[in-house]
Design a protein around this nucleic acid. Structure first.
Length: 602
RNA sequence: CGGGGCGUAGCGCAGCCUGGUAGCGCGCCUGCUUUGGGAGCAGGAUGUCGGAGGUUCGAAUCCUCUCGCCCCGACCA
């Protein structure tokens, strides 16, 4: 391909609307243009990248026995009504009416449609299992499109669906997909993790996400280097560090009945704030209310009493479907609303006057003792001794002990943090920001039941088909690849998904010798099956170098007067900028040697 | 949906506070020179100042409404 004939509108200056590195580079290097918020045009370079990614995906999907089909992007509403998602999903679904006034929508995903297909075609266990996939546009009226092609309102997704007789079959289809996904991301040259994820609106129990670490990512993932535990913070479990008691180098020792020794004091302010000895058997009587005028938040009371935030109980009054309840987390921890929602169902924080009505005290002084409200407490509060709101205006109570002064349902309802201990093995976990590049869900019968996708087993008994669904966003793979592979000069494509393998840069098209040498190398490499772009423009060398680095083709071949005088051209690796001088006659052989390390085009 | 920012030439921006009819850099076109990291000289083209309404003798500038885009948050099959 000749550069002069290929549409690559590079720009020198960073467009004002771009923030994310991949967005900036894909705009500047002439890969994409924005049509409207969350709508992108893929220019020739980007479309070549997309096609290479989709080819890899197809190969790996076919390899696990999945079959490609194509479904409409425009859907009749009634199928979505049958599964309930027509009403469950809000403004995120594009809805419209056809000329007959029938409700339609643009597909956000295709569970409904493919299940409709399965319901009308699958009759017998003999037809199972099946795996069907497609590469199709998805439409979602995103509340906030952002970061270029990372979050758009229309995007291509590879979505596949498995149909099995039973849970064992589903587990097998799920495993095959997970393995195929690993191969896909590896072949695309991405760094990635597989993490546990929240099934969310998809329903079902088990779900994983594939995450490419990048500061442009919208998710945080929790990783344990020791046991391999990995999960999205949406559901990641962790054990926060122990309560920090003043003057105590070790964690508090109040474990079980054996610890009858004196509790270390969480307070600094000398003897008057010392807590009397407490043991597990004590039934209160050692609580002391201390005045904390106008100190309401943990930070305020913590500073006022000079006690670490981990010595406090944060009590949050929530209004649930079954009435008010208290959510309790340690003062240094943050309540994880999604975790709480899974336990408590729908809830909302109580308003100020509601707090007063229910507890008789204003917010800021509420605590878990002295009231009979239902309580859901974070597990980090199970041990230790605490200061909590006194349920009395202007006072906090010190010496509050879980199990003694209050009881609660215990759950992990805090937000996992860097440095917390792994819930599985106890090693410290790390947090990383990541781009979601794929996900897999075990759906079970969530769609097959309402849409009556059933089969007859050997005994002639009717059973629902057990389903899974699996998605990959090729554009996100491309953007993640750019996020993970770039330098100050531009993109550095992994060889497997680069739009071209090699860019030939003849420095002066006016020189016949340069032109001839470049032309010969261009033809020879093309004949060897490489995809080559030659910058045949009548531009100055500086412009050609800058554009080549921006665009990010893995290997550059620079042909200039200087080199030719010495009988060589230069092979330059985009990633390292390492240059190798090779005689023109040896170029093809040398490139073939080099390419395994650059991932030769398959 | 809440908070913030920005819409002026193809791109990046100044001008707006303090009203007087639009400017800079890059790019683009022509010619000459130049050619190993975004060239030099000379000449040239390009604007519904996002839109509508209002105030005023006069609006890019002040006021009202509106549309669009970006960022933070909420949300996110």
């Amino acid at each position: 391909m000749l550069f002069s004939k290929f549409f690559i509108p590079t720009v020198r200056e960073t467009p004002a609307e771009a923030e994310a590195v991949s967005h900036v580079l894909m705009l500047r290097a002439g890969y994409v243009r924005q049509l409207a918020s969350g709508l992108y045009i893929y220019l020739p370079l980007a479309w070549k990248v997309m096609n290479r990614i989709m080819k890899i995906i197809r190969e790996e999907m076919d390899a696990i026995g999945a079959q490609e089909i194509s479904m409409p992007g425009l859907h009749p509403a009634d199928i979505w009504q049958k599964t309930g998602r027509w009403s469950d999903i809000g403004e995120e679904m594009f809805r419209l009416k056809d000329r007959g006034g029938r409700d339609m929508c643009l597909g956000m995903t295709h569970e409904e449609i493919i299940t409709w297909l399965a319901s009308s075609e699958i009759r017998s266990y003999r037809q199972l299992p099946q795996m069907w996939y497609q590469m199709q546009a998805k439409f979602r009226d995103e509340a906030r499109p952002k970061s270029g092609v990372l979050r758009t309102r229309e995007f291509i997704m590879k979505d596949s669906y498995s149909f099995d007789r039973d849970e064992e079959g589903l587990a097998e289809s799920y495993r095959k997909h997970a393995e195929a996904y690993h191969r896909i991301y590896e072949r695309c040259g991405l760094k990635f993790y597989q993490v546990q994820s929240d099934p969310g609106m998809m329903g079902g129990a088990t779900a994983h996400e594939f995450m490419a670490p990048s500061p442009a990512g919208e998710d945080m993932i929790v990783l344990c280097g020791k046991c391999g535990y990995s999960a999205n913070t949406e559901l990641a479990l962790s054990v926060p560090p122990s309560q920090k008691l003043k003057g105590d180098e070790n964690p508090p020792a109040s474990r079980g009945d054996s610890s009858r020794q004196r509790e270390p004091s969480p307070f600094v302010k000398g003897g008057d704030l010392e807590i009397p000895p407490l043991t597990k058997g004590d039934k209160g009587g050692f609580l002391e209310d201390i005045p904390t005028p106008n100190r309401r938040t943990v930070a305020e009371v913590s500073a006022f009493l000079k006690a670490d935030p981990s010595c406090f109980i944060k009590s949050l009054l929530m209004i649930g479907d079954d009435g008010p309840f208290l959510a309790l987390v340690r003062g240094d921890q943050e309540l994880h609303e999604k975790k709480l929602q899974k336990i408590a169902g729908n809830f909302r924080p109580a308003q100020k006057d509601e707090v007063k009505d229910i507890l008789g005290v204003e917010a800021g002084f509420i605590g878990p003792h002295n009231n009979k409200l239902k309580k859901i407490a974070d597990v980090s509060l199970k041990e230790g001794i605490y200061i909590a709101g006194a349920n009395k205006a202007g006072f906090h109570t010190k010496g509050v002990k879980p199990h003694v002064d209050f009881e609660a349902e215990w759950h992990d309802i805090h937000v996992a943090r860097q440095g917390d201990a792994c819930a599985k093995c106890g090693a410290p976990v790390t947090l990383e920001q990541a781009i979601e590049i794929g996900n897999i869900f075990q759906l079970g019968t969530k769609y097959s039941l309402p849409l009556k996708a059933v089969y007859l087993d050997e005994g002639g008994k009717e059973k629902p088909i057990i389903m899974g669904s699996y998605g990959i966003g090729p554009a996100r793979i491309a953007a993640a690849a750019v996020e993970q592979n770039n330098d100050k000069d531009g993109i550095i494509w992994p060889g497997s998904i680069a739009p071209f393998d090699i860019e030939i840069i003849p420095l002066d098209m006016g020189e016949k010798e340069i032109q001839d040498t470049a032309g010969a190398i261009y033809r020879d490499l093309g004949n060897e099956g490489f995809e080559v772009i030659m910058d045949d423009r009548d531009e100055r060398p500086g412009i050609k170098f800058k554009d080549a680095d921006l665009i990010g083709i893995p290997l550059q071949i620079v042909i200039g007067k200087k080199g030719l005088k010495e009988g060589v051209v230069e092979l330059k690796t985009r990633r390292t900028k390492a240059t190798e001088r090779v005689s023109p006659a040896d170029v093809v052989r040398r490139v073939k040697d080099l390419f395994p390390s650059l991932e030769k085009r398959d």
